[in-house]
Computed example of a mutant assay.
Amino acid sequence: MTIVIFVIVLWYGGLFFQSFFLHRYAAHQVFTMSKTMERITFVLTWIFQGSSYLSAYGYGIMHRLHHAFTDTENDPHSPSYDDNLFAMMWKTKTIYQDINTQRIAVDQRFTKNVPQWKSFDAFASSRFSRILWISFYIIFFVFFATAWWQWLLLPVTFLMAPIHGVIINWFGHVYGYVNFKMKNTSKNLFRFDFLMMGEGYHNNHHKHASRANFGVKWYEIDITYLIIRILDALKVIQLKPIKK
């Protein structure tokens, strides 16, 4: 049971910081925070994403490219232009690394105000950091695994962020329902997104990219947005006014 709880904590912890920090803050800037809070969130993202840590800079720019070129050949990840989800994720990884290492030129409109902490990212994205987290996960399983099937969850801890990415960027463009007819294949995965904390309302998000709340219908409860509202009420962050 300890292993299952551990994986659930990593799943939702990593997912929250990917949605809250990398997606809604770095890419779309639907709220603001102080520089100190930003640095704290960088560290918390590293702690919960662990071996699959994603840089806010690389993620933020790549996601902006996804919105600008959705389902075209310039989209960093589109089922319409990749043969399978593994090919799509390999392409995504390559583009993400090219952005982070500045091997490709990116238009200034995609880089504007994207948070970057170069020295921390260099450490958190390093092979040393990733091996350190993988070693920790293995040791944790050695001490707490009580059944053979629990070891099947170990690879999930290594690849948590890419798994989250596959669910949205592949399945969120293949399966589900739509609230808005658009010139792309984005879909909402669940009526109530218990699995992806609101990220599964992908069609809604493509229609209203600048909204903090990804839910539209009454039953589309965006868990990440509820947490954002609490943090805003506590003055930890500041939600931007809704554009009409």
Rank of each mutant, 00 (worst) to 15 (best):
D83T: 02
K207G: 05
L10K: 03
L15C: 06
Y53T: 03
W149C: 10
D107H: 09
H205M: 06
W117S: 13
V30N: 10
K235C: 07
R103N: 15
W151R: 07
M1Q: 12
R39K: 15
F180Q: 10
Y53W: 04
Y57P: 01
N84D: 15
T101M: 13
F120S: 14
N100L: 09
S186P: 02
Y57C: 03
F6C: 07
P79G: 09
P241V: 05
G60V: 03
E199I: 00
I95F: 01
S52W: 02
K183W: 06
M182K: 15
K235R: 15
E73C: 06
I99R: 01
V4A: 15
F123W: 15
K112H: 12
K93I: 05
K187C: 12
G14S: 09
F144D: 11
V4Y: 15
Q49G: 04
R109Y: 00
M88W: 02
L159P: 00
L239S: 04
V236T: 12
F190R: 07
T224G: 05
V156Y: 05
E38P: 06
V166L: 13
K112I: 10
W90H: 12
D222S: 14
K183A: 11
D71F: 08
V43G: 07
L231E: 03
S126N: 05
Y53C: 01
G172A: 12
D98H: 08
F144M: 12
F158M: 12
I138V: 14
L152T: 04
S125F: 09
W90S: 14
W149H: 12
Y12P: 00
K235G: 00
Q238M: 13
N184F: 05
Q108I: 04
N113D: 15
M88T: 05
L195F: 11
K181T: 14
L10G: 01
L85K: 04
L226V: 14
Y53Q: 01
F190G: 02
I138G: 01
T94L: 11
D222K: 08
N203S: 07
A105T: 13
D107T: 08
D121I: 04
M196R: 05
L85S: 13
A147G: 08
Q18P: 02
N113K: 11
M62E: 10
Q108A: 13
N203P: 04
T45G: 01
S51V: 06
A147Q: 13
G14Y: 00
R211N: 15
K35M: 11
L195R: 07
I237C: 03
T32H: 09
L65T: 02
V9K: 08
Y137L: 07
V114N: 02
F110V: 09
Y137K: 03
Y225T: 04
R211Y: 12
W149N: 09
T224I: 04
F48A: 03
P155L: 10
S55V: 06
F192S: 07
R127H: 12
V166C: 08
F6H: 04
Y25R: 03
K112A: 13
V4H: 14
H202S: 07
L195Y: 06
